[in-house]
Simulated assay, not measured.
Amino acid sequence: MRVSQPLSLARTLPRRLLAPAGTPTGAACPGTSSKTVPQKPNPLPPVRYHIFRSPLPYPQGLELQHRVIEGRLQRRERGESSAQDVMFLLEHTPTYTTGRRDNSPNPDTLHPEEEKVQDVGAGFYITKRGGQVTYHGPGQIVGYPILDLTAMGTPTRCYVEYLQSLLREYAEDLGLEVVAPHEDGHVGVFRGRDEKLASIGIHLRHRITSHGFAMNVTPEPVPWFDLVTACGLADVRAVSISQLLERQGKTGPSVAECAAALVPRFASTFGREFVPLDAPAEGKTAGEIEAIRDIVADITAQAENAEKEAGGWPTRPRVKAQ
């Protein structure tokens, strides 16, 4: 099943435009994920975060981001305070997606990668994020930070580097030898040349980020990845944290443990406080926080209904691609 999403979340930035005006391509970004990103003089409000406990269908993940960003922009237009950044951490139900920079989709024919995964038990969505075909599903942590890069004083290219660095350092702290980016320049976190652990693909709308990253935690996503040429890298295969640690005789974290561990890394990287979405809210952003809570509650209910209607989600591909 292919669905082309009409949501106007953002325009995708070609790689050559990731550096801000006046910044030489390849120039070093200030700070790393082990050194707090330089801050503006006026401190920003804490980032609110929410960890979903059950997998979201991909359309609900898009709607979640769209409604939060749209509400924020509408408040701006009304002259109301709108400074509430938020981050969502979650798993998706089995889903293949491709981004706008993938020029192969044709409205009259199946995407070449979609032909490989007919009837395997996963949806296929053409989206507006950056990047090519990838997979999302249970066993993979997905992060959707919705951050105002202008307010943070962070160039887009540097934001991508910070995401990449904090994911790399999380893997390294687990005892894994990884590289980020790939030695050929591909964005993401890799184990050597031919195994990929994490992907990054972002959007911007009025300098507000959406989409973000995905990291394979358990082995569950790998058989789904094996059915496609993920990210257009024919010689690179997906791998999970658990599989890499198993080679060392160690046990890997759960997705929930990974999500909990990433929150303080984001706080350290961006030099900001991260507070649960359901924590008490006061001050200028209280109304906006309450509105985001209502959106999350609605999206959660939609996901629960979708799971009931589907009778659950497959844990492995139903058939092998021919």
Rank of each mutant, 00 (worst) to 15 (best):
Y135H: 13
H136S: 05
P138I: 01
P138D: 02
Q140I: 07
Q140L: 04
I141Y: 01
V142N: 04
V142C: 11
G143S: 07
P145M: 09
I146Y: 06
L147E: 07
T150P: 02
A151S: 10
M152V: 00
M152Y: 04
P155C: 05
T156I: 14
R157C: 01
R157W: 08
L163H: 10
L163W: 04
Q164F: 06
S165H: 15
S165N: 14
S165G: 15
L166R: 02
L167E: 02
L167C: 02
R168S: 12
E169G: 07
E169F: 09
Y170N: 01
Y170G: 00
A171N: 07
A171L: 08
A171Q: 03
A171V: 06
E172A: 11
E172Y: 05
L174G: 09
G175F: 14
L176I: 14
V178S: 08
A180N: 10
P181E: 15
H186M: 11
H186Q: 14
G192H: 11
R193I: 03
D194K: 06
E195N: 10
A198W: 14
A198N: 09
S199N: 07
G201E: 08
I202N: 00
H203I: 02
H206Q: 14
H206A: 13
H206I: 03
I208H: 03
T209F: 13
S210W: 06
F213L: 15
A214V: 08
A214R: 00
P219F: 04
P219L: 10
E220Q: 15
P223M: 08
D226V: 05
D226P: 04
D226N: 13
L227C: 10
V228N: 00
V228W: 00
V228F: 04
T229F: 02
T229E: 13
A230G: 13
C231E: 01
C231N: 03
G232R: 02
A234I: 03
A234K: 14
D235L: 09
R237C: 10
S242G: 07
L245E: 05
E246Q: 15
R247V: 07
Q248M: 03
Q248R: 12
G249Q: 05
G249H: 08
G249N: 03
K250N: 05
K250D: 11
T251M: 04
T251C: 10
G252Y: 02
G252P: 01
P253W: 04
P253A: 09
